[in-house]
């Protein structure tokens, strides 16, 4: 059937397929063109840097979320993790180093020391919480929507308890602002970090067994089990990596704003899901790729930037984001059906 029609109007088919397969790139390019037309400062150095930093934060979350969605799960706790990770890490660092007489927090809420330990602990704590999400998911057989929703509340509650609701200042912590603000050849270091992580994940998924494990776990769990794959392990891994990504995003966020807030990152779990969906990852699992998610995070951040440059009121912004999500999801579904 399919071969008949394609031979008749093959030329049209090929170009249509080209557009369909590269839809995200095309949207990205269109956005760049629109940006240049609408605002003279769009291509300015500071503006591009600001876009890249945001892309790094949202992109990291989206990469983690995408992995979780590829194994047919969902992680609603990443936003809350962005606050809990740093808050718990600082509290723990204070406790650990208080024995050696080093003061970590002075003047009530100025963090002044222990940066390295804090960074390590942020990543470690986030990874452990992710793994915990995964373990509860597979062992207690609770849907991840519920597990991570619960975790989201637990984490934000614990963030409040640990911080007492106060913000922590990192302005007097040496080196704390480098991740969020330093540039290498005009490119934010955090964006380079994000690219490195993103490319690493893409390569691992494509060129090692891990990719087959993840895609088969989400694509047809029974088939994976029949092939002897420990799907539970890979689900837990996906949650763990999502945790690490949330931790890394939290580090960039806190470094950029040189502070830690109990409310930071709230709502970001939904943005990360939105990006993953725009990038072509589906809720049914096993479908889509990380490259799409990375492009989608750039698309979203550039769009937000353009909208704020032209001065559109937030109401319209949210409507536009909503329409893009619905549009992207239907476009992906449509192109799959007609493939």
């Amino acid at each position: 059937m399919a071969s008949d029609t394609s031979s008749i109007n093959g030329g049209y088919r090929v170009s249509a397929k080209l557009i369909k397969d590269n839809m995200l790139i095309i949207i990205l390019l269109l956005e760049l063109i629109i940006g240049v037309i609408l605002s003279p400062v769009f291509l300015g150095k500071t503006n591009i840097q600001s876009i890249l930093i945001n892309t790094a934060i949202f992109g990291l979350l989206a990469v983690g979320q995408s992995l979780v969605m590829l194994v047919k799960e969902i992680d609603l706790s990443v936003g809350a993790m962005m606050a809990f990770g740093p808050i718990a890490a600082i509290a723990l660092t204070e406790k650990i180093l208080s024995g050696s007489g080093t003061e970590i927090i002075v003047g009530g809420n100025y963090v002044v020391d222990g940066l390295l330990l804090i960074v390590i602990l942020v990543l470690l704590i986030s990874a452990l919480i992710g793994i915990l999400n995964g373990i509860i998911r597979v062992k207690a057989q609770v849907p991840s929507l519920i597990v991570t929703l619960g975790m989201m509340y637990v984490l934000s509650g614990m963030s409040y308890i640990l911080s007492g609701g106060y913000s922590l200042y990192l302005t007097n912590l040496e080196g704390a602002k480098s991740l969020g603000n330093n540039m290498i050849a005009g490119i934010p270091v955090n964006f380079i970090l994000f690219l490195v992580i993103g490319v690493l994940v893409i390569l691992v998924l494509k060129y090692t067994k891990v990719g087959h494990r993840i895609y088969s776990t989400g694509g047809n769990e029974k088939a994976a089990i029949y092939s002897g794959i420990n799907t539970n392990f890979w689900k837990i891994m996906a949650f763990g990596i999502s945790g690490v990504c949330a931790g890394a995003a939290a580090l960039i966020y806190s470094s950029r704003l040189q502070s830690v807030e109990t409310i930071q990152g709230s709502g970001y779990e939904l943005i990360s899901i939105a990006i993953a969906v725009i990038g072509g990852i589906t809720l049914e699992g096993g479908r889509g790729n990380i490259f799409g998610a990375i492009i989608a995070s750039a698309i979203l951040c550039i769009m937000l930037n353009i909208l704020s440059l032209v001065g559109l009121i937030a109401w319209y912004k949210t409507i536009i984001i909503g329409l893009i999500i619905i549009g992207a999801a239907s476009q992906h579904a449509f192109s799959r059906r007609t493939a």
Partner: peptide, 17 residues
């Protein structure tokens, strides 16, 4: 929209402009 990161991004876009 009560997001401090967004607040910072908007500030940065003002600086860029």
């Amino acid at each position: 929209e009560f997001d401090n990161n967004k607040w910072a991004s908007i500030m940065d876009s003002f600086i860029a402009q």
